[in-house]
């Protein structure tokens, strides 16, 4: 791991903590959310050694992090939204959104469209990862309920 990557992981962690403060997350949930922010980019850095396609990486990390969020939601008895929205903050494509904007301003149509579509791809990969994970969780919930006869 290079120094740049370590700086990224740590600053993503600080960023997640900042959002946790803004969203008024307290106590154990604050710790869980911050750790989520730390592992989200750690996972991304590790994955990027093996997979060069960024949207695919985003998708996998989003899947993993929503699974983490679902588990934390059950353990800490709090809505999943709390964990997902804050832990995935380092993955928000802010940089590529900015460059999309900058290219639009420069009137550079080709690069603007390229960057714009790329930003949308990242956002879609993120959302898709969350949806896949939460759907699987819902199915598991249903199976457990049926097996234990709680339904």
């Amino acid at each position: 791991m290079t120094t740049a990557e370590i700086i990224q992981i740590l600053s993503g962690f600080v960023g997640s903590m900042g959002f946790a403060v803004l969203f008024n997350i307290r106590g154990k949930r604050f710790v869980a959310v911050s750790i989520g922010g730390l592992i989200s980019w750690l996972l991304f850095v590790i994955l990027s050694k093996f997979i060069s396609n960024e949207p695919t990486n985003y998708f996998i990390v989003a899947c993993a992090l929503s699974a983490y969020s679902e588990i934390m939601a059950i353990l800490l008895k709090s809505p999943t939204t709390t964990f997902i929205t804050t832990a995935l903050v380092p993955l928000i494509p802010g940089g590529s959104l900015y460059y999309t904007m900058a290219y639009a301003f420069q009137g550079n149509m080709t690069t603007f469209l390229q960057k714009g579509i790329y930003t949308l791809q990242l956002a879609a990969a993120l959302a898709l990862g969350i949806i896949v994970s939460s759907t699987i969780t819902r199915i598991i919930h249903k199976i457990i309920k049926q097996k234990t006869g709680l339904l």
Binding site: A4, I7, Q8, S11, G12, V14, G15, M17, G18, F19, V21, L22, P90, G94, G95
Partner: peptide, 14 residues
């Protein structure tokens, strides 16, 4: 924390 978010993500993006 708002200030920290801005500072942290500036580092984050290089």
């Amino acid at each position: 924390s708002c200030a920290a978010i801005a500072g942290a993500f500036t580092l984050f993006f290089g």
